[in-house]
């Protein structure tokens, strides 16, 4: 029988590293993806993910189950990603290049009309401010509910809805701008 997160948390609190390893295994990819959406670099995303799990272990006793473990973990991921951004303000340029790399790496998606479309879409996304970007990533790519996003971002559901709307508006403007730029 596969153990639930709650069972694994209880075992971790009793000192089992195997249980914590399993907890990490259950959520490592989500944490990594969220970290990547801020760092836009595989190695840096792994650094951030590592810090997220260490923080989670350190603070496991403060997790009382008011939200799901996954939501709690993503909240830590958001905080750690923000810390990373503060420390790495100077590295905006390499991120710009790497977001192009994502575009070319994952370009085989049939659903997206064209390669350029996807690159531009992700570029628009990565140009959003960090809070708005996380809301879009969680909603569209990680399929989180509005109420879970509200818990992670520590705001009301109404604010999340408004953020999504404004994010898409902003992306629309950014895409238009880049289209005009390409044309010129």
């Amino acid at each position: 029988m596969q153990k639930t997160d709650d069972m694994l948390i209880a075992e971790t609190k009793e000192g089992s590293y195997e249980a914590f390893d399993q907890l990490m295994k259950n959520h490592q990819e989500e944490v990594y993806r969220v970290a990547y959406s801020f760092t836009r670099n595989v190695d840096c995303a792994l650094d951030v993910s590592q810090n997220v799990f260490l923080k989670a272990y350190e603070n496991l006793n403060s997790f009382k189950g008011a939200s799901t473990f996954k939501t709690w973990l993503l909240r830590i991921s958001w905080n750690e990603s923000m810390n990373w951004i503060k420390k790495n303000k100077k590295h905006q340029m390499h991120r710009e290049v790497e977001d192009l790399e994502i575009g070319s790496d994952q370009i085989t998606d049939r659903e997206v009309e064209s390669r350029e479309d996807k690159v531009m879409l992700l570029r628009g996304l990565f140009n959003l401010n960090t809070r708005y970007r996380l809301a879009v990533v969680l909603r569209y790519f990680e399929n989180y509910s509005i109420s879970d996003i509200a818990v992670i971002l520590n705001c009301s559901e109404g604010v999340v809805k408004n953020m999504l709307f404004r994010s898409l508006q902003k992306m629309k403007q950014l895409l238009k701008k880049s289209e005009v730029g390409d044309y010129q």
Partner: peptide, 17 residues
């Protein structure tokens, strides 16, 4: 246009390598 962006975002499966 916003509806279009929403649809495109929905269609993206892999946004990270």
């Amino acid at each position: 246009e916003i509806v279009e962006i929403h649809k495109k975002l929905r269609s993206v499966k892999n946004y990270v390598p």
